[in-house]
């Protein structure tokens, strides 16, 4: 009896926590869907009664929205495609070979994720400035690759390790080469992990702010994150538009994150990845 009452109390607390944690997100989305009168109301309108997409309309008509969406997509896609290939090669080496320097490489992969990016932005800016690559997407892509690579290597290492070596050895006995066995046996088995890792890299790069902010100064070259962060400064405070912009920026990430979260959860402690 006492146990059940206790559980009901705990359930109640848990539900309260959910409400408190999710309220800000609800408030963002509902504000985005409200007409201006309901947004700028002295008594909050808890549930929007006149749903409208006007705020989304005005958000996407803020200069450079589509431009910056395209930039973000170019930067992030290039980063992810190149990095996932490089990371997969390195992960295969770490998971399948014992070689001199392997431990050092693993430690480096972990340690490098701890380097605060905010500290590196100064030398990166100065170095790229010297070679005339400031305000170019290439510089940002190169940098993002280095940001997602360690995490990707680490996660993929886990996926490859989980495929039993016996499978590969069986294929090799049947006459496959080492690489052939790896590509035909291991690759299909880790493919879901590969996709999950790539998506996670996508999210990381999509969310990045400071590097893009420092390196990309021309409005037409900026990313969506920069667009959103400078929304208020450039246009006063159009809360409805800002919340619509925030919702649009967050939406693809949230969807992707919900898909991959459970695949990569295990390796997250070893990566400075914060969604």
């Amino acid at each position: 009896m006492r146990r059940t009452t206790g559980r009901i109390v705990l359930d109640g607390i848990a539900i309260l926590i959910v409400v408190v944690m999710l309220f800000p997100i609800y408030w963002m989305v509902s504000t985005a869907l409200k007409p201006g009168k309901e947004i700028l109301s002295l008594t909050p309108v808890w549930v929007p009664t006149h749903l409208t997409f006007d705020n989304f309309q005005s958000a996407i008509h803020v200069p450079f929205f589509w431009n910056d969406v395209v930039n973000s997509l170019i930067i992030v896609t290039t980063t992810v495609i190149v990095s996932i290939v490089l990371a997969f090669l390195a992960a295969a080496a770490v998971a399948r070979f014992g070689f001199r320097g392997r431990a050092a490489f693993v430690v480096m992969v972990i340690a490098v994720q701890m380097v605060p990016l905010n500290a590196l932005v100064i030398p990166i800016y100065l170095l790229l400035d010297r070679v005339g690559q400031v305000d170019s997407l290439i510089g940002v892509i190169a940098y993002y690759m280095a940001v997602v690579l360690p995490f990707m290597i680490w996660t993929l290492r886990g996926f490859v390790t989980n495929v039993p070596v016996d499978l590969e050895e069986a294929a090799m006995i049947d006459g496959a080469t080492r690489i052939g066995a790896f590509m035909r046996i291991v690759f299909p088995l880790v493919a879901p992990g590969l996709v999950a890792t790539a998506i996670f890299g996508f999210i990381q790069a999509w969310n990045e702010y400071i590097i893009a902010y420092v390196l990309l100064s021309t409005s037409s070259k900026q990313t969506l994150t920069i667009w959103l962060a400078s929304f208020t400064t450039q246009h006063g405070t159009d809360w409805g538009g800002l919340m619509a912009g925030a919702t649009l920026t967050a939406l693809p990430v949230v969807v992707l994150f919900l898909i991959v979260q459970r695949y990569v959860q295990g390796s997250l402690t070893a990566g400075a990845v914060k969604g």
């Binding site: 999710l22 997100i25 962060a229 929304f231 925030a246 949230v254 979260q261």
Partner: peptide, 23 residues
């Protein structure tokens, strides 16, 4: 319910999150 709620918050990118708290 609670884990799903937490994952939702986790998924929210930092810049939109800052904007919504600003509001």
């Amino acid at each position: 319910l609670l884990s799903a709620g937490l994952v939702f918050v986790w998924a929210t990118p930092v810049i939109p999150a800052v904007n919504l708290w600003q509001w």
